[in-house]
Design a protein around this nucleic acid. Structure first.
Length: 463
RNA sequence: GGCCCCAUCGUCUAGCGGUUAGGAUCCAUGGUUUUCAUCCAUGUUACCGGAGUUCGAGUCUCCGUGGGGUCACCA
């Protein structure tokens, strides 16, 4: 069975890049009918942050990614780690190192001065002398001193490191007894049966250390997939400094989760020329072998297009619900179908759409100066007054076509173009020159309100 | 700096030894439209450089160049 996992450290909100690797992991597990696990990597107590964990869960919930089993917290599994550390100690595959941080710093400085690679020199590796009593020891693992360490990576192929270039006897337990990252990931992944690890490229250099742990413990390493980074516009690794990388910020900006997911799945992965993927399609089609090898630049142009696409294809009922957080209440609005139909293919985000709804439903508070100047010249006011009369004599005004007929009648009688009435009418009704069809707008607000707005414009606008 | 990874339109990408190098987005133009948007059509723009292998190289190999990642008692 395929078991994948997402293993964030709770240091803040869920990052857009994290979401992508989580999505890839999720999809791959689903595709294979396997499991997708969520594990919070909170071994460092000083950096443990409960709000961050909550934020991650909230974001998962919003996009609809569901993990299997309970959430694992490494902070709750300490006994397990101590047990395995003890095992390595007993088997002489790990040892206590009494070197203090200060001594280590000195060593590092010497190595740097000599232009050597900074590394632990192994002084306590097979130490049998008197141990200094005043320093609490760390536990170091005996790593291979030389020879190749190969990573079988599903994206990069075979990546070979030489132990002598990159390894030393790294710390697996701090002086306070808590285990370190490279040790716990390996232990947890092995124990939880995680056999396919999809994670960021930036972890590639950790892989050799983890393999050392796997081997020392007699576990079989998983298959790795090191996904290329997402870069910012400067070509650097996307970080929290880059703005708008909090997944939940996209909710606030009015993006639909399906748009975000569709956008993210196409960042680094492709399936021929296909651009639109429903959640079901992603689950059915995703395969990490189709992840490309180079980093991609984070640029949200396409996200806007996708979001517009998903808004266009949403039902009006869904839209009513989605617009509520933006202060738009349409449930009981009798013309909501007309309104939403007109607006859904004009908005890039829900937020934009909310503004558009508001611009129609509420009486304009101000009139755009440029629009007034452009539209209110000549006999504009007279035409509007005539149009009021046209509306007044009609009953049963419900559909956009009813209003369209009224407009048509007027332009025909006066022998003018639609623009002659359209422009000033638009300013009168909406306060500006752009927006949905006027017939639609009037149908939504109704005859009385239409007349009211037109009269206010005629009396209130100086031209 | 050591080690590792990467290199096709501005951006996201297809390509898997023989293609007029394809799609999407963006941008521009035209059409539709009472405006704006949608929609439709059209167009501009790409194989980092150099050697090699081959009848033939974006595709394979090597070198160079460029970019990125990583080098903690963080994860």
């Amino acid at each position: 069975m395929t078991v994948t996992r997402f293993a964030p450290s709770p240091t803040g909100y869920l990052h857009i890049g994290g979401l992508r690797t989580a999505l890839f992991s999720y999809l791959w597990a689903r595709k294979n009918g396997g499991k997708f696990l969520l594990r919070i990597e909170d071994t460092d107590e000083r950096r443990n942050n409960h709000e961050a964990t909550e934020a991650i869960i909230e974001a998962f919930k919003w996009v609809g990614l569901e993990h299997d089993d309970e959430i694992f917290f490494q902070s709750e599994r300490k006994a397990l780690y101590t047990q395995y550390i003890q095992q390595l100690l007993d088997e002489n595959k790990a040892y206590y190192c009494y070197m203090s941080k200060e001594e280590l710093d000195v060593l590092r400085e010497q190595q740097m001065a000599a232009k050597e690679r900074t590394r632990y020199d192994g002084r306590y590796r097979d130490f049998d002398g008197e141990t200094p009593g005043d320093t609490a020891p760390v536990v170091r693992i005996k790593a291979p001193l030389s020879g190749p360490i190969v990573i079988r990576d599903g994206i990069k192929g075979e990546v070979v490191f030489q132990a002598e270039d990159i390894l030393d006897d790294f710390i697996i337990a701090r002086a306070d007894g808590t285990p370190t990252y490279n040790f716990v990931v390996a232990v947890d992944d092995a124990l939880m049966g995680v056999n396919e690890v999809i994670r960021g490229d930036d972890h590639l250099s950790n892989a050799p250390k983890q393999i050392v742990v796997y081997e020392a413990l007699g576990f079989e390493p998983p298959r790795f997939y090191h996904v290329p980074m997402i870069h910012n516009q400067d070509g650097k690794k996307l970080s929290k400094r880059d703005g708008a990388t909090d997944v939940m910020a996209y909710k606030e900006m009015g993006y639909l989760p399906e748009a975000l997911l569709n956008f993210l799945v196409r960042l680094g992965w492709s399936h021929g020329d296909q651009e639109i993927f429903s959640f079901e399609e992603m689950c059915a089609l995703f395969d990490p072998k189709d992840i490309n090898k180079s980093a991609s630049v984070y640029n949200t142009e396409k996200l806007d297009w996708l979001n517009a696409h998903y808004i266009k294809n949403s039902s009006n009922a869904t839209l009513v619900t989605l617009l509520e957080p933006y202060g738009i209440t349409l449930v009981s609005h009798d013309k909501k179908e007309i309104l939403l139909d007109a607006l859904k293919d004009r908005a890039k985000t829900l937020k934009e759409m909310a503004t558009m709804v508001d611009e129609i439903v509420s009486t304009p508070k101000t009139y755009d100066a440029k629009a007034v100047k452009k539209a209110f010249k000549g006999d504009a006011k007279a035409i509007l007054e005539d149009f009021i009369l046209k509306l007044q004599v009609r009953d049963e005004m419900h559909l956009p076509s009813d209003y369209h007929e009224a407009m048509e009648e007027l332009v025909n009688e006066k022998g003018i173009g639609f623009g002659k009435i359209g422009q000033p009418l638009r300013v009168a009704l909406l306060g500006k020159l752009s927006g949905p069809g006027l017939d639609t707008g009037m149908a939504v607000i109704g005859k009385e309100e239409s007349i009211r707005r037109i009269s206010s414009a005629v009396t209130g606008i100086d031209s």
